[in-house]
Design a protein around this nucleic acid. Sequence first.
DNA 1: GACAAAATTTGACGAATAGTTAAAATGCGT
DNA 2: ACGCATTTTAACTATTCGTCAAATTTTGTC
Lengths: 239, 239
Amino acid sequence: MSTLARKKREFAQREELILETAQRLMLKVGYLGVTMDLIAKEIEYSKGTIYQHFSSKEEILLALALQFNRKQAEFFQRAAMFSGKSRERVIALAEAYELFVRLYPDHFKTELLILNESIRAKGSIELRRQLEACEQQSMSIVSGVVRDGLAQGDFEGVPGISPEEIVFGIWTGAFGAYVLMSSDAPLTALGIQDPMKALRVSIHAVLDGFGWRPFSSEWDYQKTRERVKKEIFPKETIL
Amino acid sequence: MSTLARKKREFAQREELILETAQRLMLKVGYLGVTMDLIAKEIEYSKGTIYQHFSSKEEILLALALQFNRKQAEFFQRAAMFSGKSRERVIALAEAYELFVRLYPDHFKTELLILNESIRAKGSIELRRQLEACEQQSMSIVSGVVRDGLAQGDFEGVPGISPEEIVFGIWTGAFGAYVLMSSDAPLTALGIQDPMKALRVSIHAVLDGFGWRPFSSEWDYQKTRERVKKEIFPKETIL
DNA sequence: GACAAAATTTGACGAATAGTTAAAATGCGT
DNA sequence: ACGCATTTTAACTATTCGTCAAATTTTGTC
């Protein structure tokens, strides 16, 4: 029976339409400004139909966040495959993160909201579970690179600190930076002209500080970045 | 006329009561669960009275965030006065931040919400302006220490990167870490047992990486931390 | 202490919005 | 073309924000 397949496809398409529309509206009128009636009007279906797909407004948020997180994990996955020294692979991951932020600048706005327990809790258990699984996947990809670095003797690690905790230190730096960049915090007023550049410099400082070889002074990581863009993300890189 | 003074005092007291209650409720039932009626019931005044003080629920949020930010700036101010080498003063700032987070673990929950444009925009221009001024004050305190470090020749800086951008790199690391810690992100499930420790290690890595002397290998910064606690925050440190 | 004016507090009310559901519309197989 | 099943709709309920006219309390005066 092909009708069933078609129905399923149509259902999935409409779900995508809802998500796209919600995201677009979120950008335009903000979280508080997006109402179910507005989404309904925009997609030219009634509100009841939306509730066939999502149990609440926050469930839509969570679904959006999951989409973004899946994409992010995919970017990390690809970046981790980069062939080179372990520190180069870390740079590939950083580049993947930066690229992801450039392509989906709205991601952190969604992320900010769902980091709030009260908002996250309104989503279904199922979605929350999937989201956590996705976060874990990203973490294991990145900490895998750290483990490789340790195994290959490119750096020594820190006694009493796990690879995950080293990742935590680097990651939160990038995470915090992107959160602030995508919020309306007035960065330029604070004297920060190029936060992306500041972040890249600071990541190299951490890696140098951890003693991760080759040091930034003895290797051309700019070249590495360009190789990453060319070899891993040729399509995503828009110059 | 003493009645006027009394009135003013009572008004200020009630404003404080509203803020305290809102914060307590926020912790208990979350942002979405806090309603104006609930606050009114809790403070045993009617809703209309709350609107004498705050024009909306989000204005209360912003007022809370401002209180926290003021306290934070005060902590930084005190930490920056620490007498010692410039890198020790950075550690004093980091310690101030950590102490602040321990004392006011709810701050980042509020911060997460008001980082959202849509929510922040609902507050009054006046409060938003004050909040920005406060952020700027903190930034100038911290970047002042970085400038001192440069002036005293304790590190060389990075060509093309301003002191503020160096601060940005360190700060966002701490900020991101605390945001994740105070959200319900499942950190232990990700293999991170002691995020505070991980953060401290990572901050030293950044400073080492920036070539900020004395390096963590040639100075006992644990002792510095204890001095900071004893000399700057004797009352706030609860062991 | 009594009274009027001023200031404050109240809670009922209108508006907006989330989420529900019975009824209408549409689609499908025969 | 008909009847059954599924989908969509829009009216409905419930909740909550923010307002405002009326009630209450406080203040100043005689």
